[in-house]
Amino acid sequence: MTITVNRDRGHKMRHTVSVRQHRISADEGAAVGGEDLGVTPHELYDSALGTCKAMTVLWYAHRKGMPLEDVSATVDRDDSQERQGTYRLRVTLTLGGPLLTDAQRRELLAVAEKCPVHKLMTQVTTEITTELASAAP
């Protein structure tokens, strides 16, 4: 899969992220030269974790026949020590369903800890290669 990121030249820093047929606006806040016309790259990263946890819990609950009616995730970031090598994310899950037992809620929390993006962020070595495209003639 290829994701493309293209500058919107009508704005200072705004870019359009294209994933399959979907479009996401990305920008920075005014404090760093943007116009706040979209989510920041850090917000995209953080939201991937919350989204993955919520979707993983929903998928698992449906698969196991659990009475989960709704799920939402809130992601809070502490980037105060990012430059020193520590980036903290706290995800709070809200599970809806009056028939969920305490044991099922604990099981769903354990499942959330194993979502694929959580694993990517904490257990996998990511190798990144950045290169320039060939110059146009």
Rank of each mutant, 00 (worst) to 15 (best):
Thr40Val: 06
Ala133Trp: 04
Arg63Asp: 05
Met55Leu: 15
Ser134Phe: 08
Thr122Gln: 07
Asp78Ser: 09
Thr86Gly: 02
Asn6Tyr: 01
Leu95Met: 11
Leu37Ala: 12
Leu109Arg: 13
Glu127Ser: 10
Lys119Met: 10
Ala73Phe: 01
Arg83Glu: 14
Pro67Gly: 11
Arg23Gly: 02
Ala61Cys: 05
Gly97Phe: 07
Thr40Asp: 05
Leu100Tyr: 01
Gln84Thr: 11
Glu113Val: 06
Leu89Cys: 09
Arg23Glu: 07
Ala136Asn: 09
Ala110Asn: 12
Asp78Gly: 03
Val111His: 08
Asp70Trp: 12
Met13Asn: 04
Met66Ser: 05
Glu28Tyr: 08
Ser80Cys: 08
Lys119Leu: 07
Gly34Ala: 06
Arg20Trp: 00
Ala48Ser: 13
Ala135Asn: 10
Arg88Thr: 15
Pro98His: 12
Tyr87Asn: 13
Arg63Lys: 14
Glu82Gln: 15
His42Phe: 10
Gln104His: 08
His15Lys: 04
Met1Phe: 00
Gly38His: 08
Leu99Ser: 12
Ala54Pro: 08
Leu100Lys: 06
Arg63His: 13
Asp36Gln: 13
Pro67Tyr: 04
Thr4Ile: 07
Asn6Ser: 14
Val124His: 13
Arg88Ser: 13
Val57Asp: 10
Val91Phe: 03
Asp76Cys: 12
Met13Thr: 13
Asp36Tyr: 11
Val111Pro: 03
Lys12Thr: 06
Gly65Arg: 07
Thr4Met: 02
Tyr87Asp: 15
Leu44Lys: 04
Ala103Met: 06
Thr92Ala: 09
Ile24Cys: 01
Ile128Lys: 00
Glu82Pro: 02
Pro41Gly: 10
Gly65Glu: 08
Lys12Asn: 14
Gln84Phe: 02
Gln123Lys: 15
Thr56Gly: 07
Gln84Asn: 08
Ala54Arg: 05
Tyr45Arg: 04
Met13Tyr: 04
Ala112Pro: 01
Gln21Arg: 10
Gly38Arg: 02
Ala136Lys: 02
Thr101Ala: 10
Gly50Met: 05
Thr101Met: 06
His42Gln: 13
Arg90Phe: 11
Leu93Val: 11
Leu89Arg: 15
Val5Glu: 01
Asp79Glu: 15
Cys52Lys: 03
Arg77Asn: 14
Leu132Phe: 09
Pro67Phe: 03
Glu28Cys: 10
Arg88His: 13
Thr40Cys: 08
Tyr45Ser: 02
Glu127Cys: 02
Thr74Leu: 12
Thr2Trp: 01
Met13Leu: 15
Asp27Phe: 11
Asp27Glu: 13
Tyr87Ala: 11
Asp76Val: 13
Pro98Val: 15
Thr94Phe: 13
Glu127Pro: 00
Glu35His: 07
Leu93Glu: 01
Val19Pro: 00
Arg105Gly: 05
Arg7Ala: 14
Val71Leu: 12
Thr101His: 09
Asp46Ile: 01
Lys64Arg: 14
Glu113Thr: 03
Gly33Ile: 09
His22Gln: 03
Thr122Ala: 12
Ser18Gln: 09
Asp8Trp: 02
Leu132Cys: 11
Leu37Phe: 11
Ala61Gln: 06
Val19Phe: 02
Met13Ser: 07
Val57Arg: 06
His42Ile: 09
Leu58Pro: 00
Lys119Asn: 12
